[in-house]
Simulated scan of single mutants.
Amino acid sequence: MLIFKQSRYIALLVGVILVSFSAISLMNPEGTAATGENVIEMGKLKSASHQSVEQLIPQAASVLHRTSHSAGIITPMLYTTAAKPVHTWTRTVSAGWLSPEKLQRKDAVKPASIVTKPKVTVVKASPPVAQALRIAATGTKSVKSSKAVTQQHPPATLFFSRTKLLPKEQQAEATWSYAVSGEDLHLLQKIVMAEAEGEPYKGKVAVANVVLNRLRSANYPDTIREVIYQKRQFSPVANGRLKRVKPNADSIKAVNAALMGVKEVTDDTYFFLSLTLAQDLTVHHSRTFAKTIGNHTFYK
Score class of each variant (00 low, 15 high):
residue 82 A to V: 03
residue 52 S to L: 12
residue 176 W to H: 12
residue 212 L to I: 00
residue 277 L to H: 04
residue 180 V to G: 02
residue 57 I to T: 02
residue 299 Y to L: 02
residue 200 P to E: 01
residue 175 T to D: 15
residue 51 Q to R: 13
residue 141 K to H: 12
residue 103 L to I: 04
residue 203 G to K: 00
residue 117 K to P: 13
residue 259 L to N: 02
residue 80 T to A: 05
residue 187 L to N: 01
residue 93 V to L: 13
residue 247 P to I: 04
residue 248 N to T: 14
residue 28 N to Q: 12
residue 146 S to D: 15
residue 201 Y to R: 09
residue 25 S to A: 13
residue 40 I to H: 07
residue 168 K to A: 10
residue 58 P to C: 03
residue 86 V to N: 10
residue 54 E to N: 02
residue 51 Q to E: 08
residue 27 M to N: 07
residue 175 T to M: 15
residue 286 S to I: 13
residue 107 D to Y: 04
residue 43 G to L: 06
residue 105 R to D: 04
residue 150 T to K: 15
residue 171 Q to G: 05
residue 270 Y to A: 03
residue 16 V to G: 08
residue 276 T to Y: 03
residue 69 H to P: 03
residue 230 Q to T: 14
residue 268 D to E: 03
residue 165 L to I: 04
residue 53 V to H: 15
residue 233 Q to Y: 12
residue 197 E to F: 10
residue 275 L to G: 09
residue 249 A to Y: 14
residue 53 V to Q: 10
residue 134 R to I: 14
residue 24 I to C: 08
residue 204 K to M: 05
residue 298 F to D: 00
residue 133 L to N: 14
residue 125 A to Q: 15
residue 106 K to E: 05
residue 124 K to I: 12
residue 89 W to G: 13
residue 225 R to N: 12
residue 279 Q to M: 09
residue 264 E to M: 04
residue 156 A to I: 09
residue 253 K to Q: 15
residue 18 L to R: 02
residue 62 S to Y: 00
residue 146 S to H: 13
residue 221 P to G: 01
residue 55 Q to L: 14
residue 104 Q to W: 04
residue 231 K to H: 09
residue 23 A to C: 11
residue 193 M to S: 05
residue 119 K to C: 15
residue 26 L to A: 11
residue 133 L to D: 12
residue 298 F to M: 02
residue 229 Y to G: 03
residue 210 V to E: 00
residue 42 M to A: 13
residue 248 N to I: 11
residue 248 N to V: 14
residue 243 K to I: 14
residue 282 T to F: 04
residue 157 T to R: 03
residue 282 T to N: 06
residue 128 P to M: 08
residue 269 T to G: 01
residue 112 A to G: 08
residue 67 T to I: 08
residue 185 L to F: 07
residue 14 V to R: 07
residue 93 V to S: 08
residue 279 Q to K: 13
residue 181 S to R: 04
residue 99 S to V: 07
residue 20 S to P: 00
residue 55 Q to W: 11
residue 83 A to S: 06
residue 186 H to L: 15
residue 66 R to S: 06
residue 124 K to M: 10
residue 30 E to G: 11
residue 80 T to W: 01
residue 296 H to I: 07
residue 26 L to D: 06
residue 127 P to I: 09
residue 113 S to C: 12
residue 126 S to P: 05
residue 138 T to K: 03
residue 198 G to C: 09
residue 56 L to V: 07
residue 93 V to E: 10
residue 129 V to E: 10
residue 176 W to T: 09
residue 208 A to R: 00
residue 8 R to P: 07
residue 21 F to T: 07
residue 300 K to Y: 01
residue 140 T to W: 06
residue 54 E to T: 03
residue 149 V to P: 12
residue 210 V to G: 00
residue 104 Q to I: 10
residue 193 M to D: 10
residue 40 I to F: 10
residue 193 M to Q: 12
residue 76 P to N: 06
residue 8 R to H: 11
residue 225 R to H: 11
residue 149 V to N: 15
residue 86 V to C: 08
residue 146 S to I: 14
residue 295 N to M: 02
residue 236 P to K: 03
residue 102 K to C: 10
residue 196 A to E: 00
residue 265 V to W: 00
residue 56 L to T: 07
residue 279 Q to C: 08
residue 170 Q to E: 15
residue 148 A to I: 12
residue 36 G to T: 05
residue 33 A to I: 06
residue 189 Q to L: 03
residue 77 M to D: 09
residue 264 E to T: 02
residue 253 K to R: 15
residue 215 L to E: 00
residue 167 P to L: 10
residue 48 A to H: 02
residue 117 K to G: 09
residue 98 L to H: 08
residue 293 I to T: 01
residue 1 M to A: 13
residue 237 V to C: 05
residue 176 W to K: 13
